[in-house]
């Protein structure tokens, strides 16, 4: 999975010298995950997936990953970063082959 990770080592400033002036900060600092937003999560049926990438481009979170390739078939295996998927369901709604189902968190076998 090629997605930014939550910064587990993030240290909050403990004095004025450590606090950047003016509300400044670095870039790409992820303090917390977003899984708490979620009730349902997407599950892919790779047999039906045609790798059209519409789910990947529409995902408002950008949390669908397209870098994993199945070594046997050579096909892209779309994966979802469950730290940042909010379960909006846009991917499932837009999938032209309906290969994505929204499953309630905790209800699947994983």
């Amino acid at each position: 999975m090629n997605k930014p990770k939550v910064n587990k080592d993030l240290k909050l400033p403990t004095n004025f010298d450590e606090l950047m002036i003016g509300g400044g900060n670095g870039v790409g600092v992820l303090a917390t995950v977003n899984s708490g937003f979620r009730t349902f999560h997407p599950v892919f049926d790779y047999n039906k997936c045609v790798r059209c990438m519409f789910c990947w481009i529409y995902c408002p979170e950008g949390c669908i990953d397209k870098t994993t390739v199945d070594p046997e078939s050579g096909k892209i295996m779309l994966e979802v970063d469950m730290d940042y998927c909010k379960g909006c369901g846009v991917c499932a709604n837009e999938c032209p082959t309906k290969c994505i189902s929204m499953v309630k968190d905790g209800d699947d076998d994983e």
Partner: peptide
């Protein structure tokens, strides 16, 4: 752009 706190489906 990643890990934002936008609403679901924004």
């Amino acid at each position: 752009l990643y890990g934002t706190k936008i609403c679901q489906g924004c």
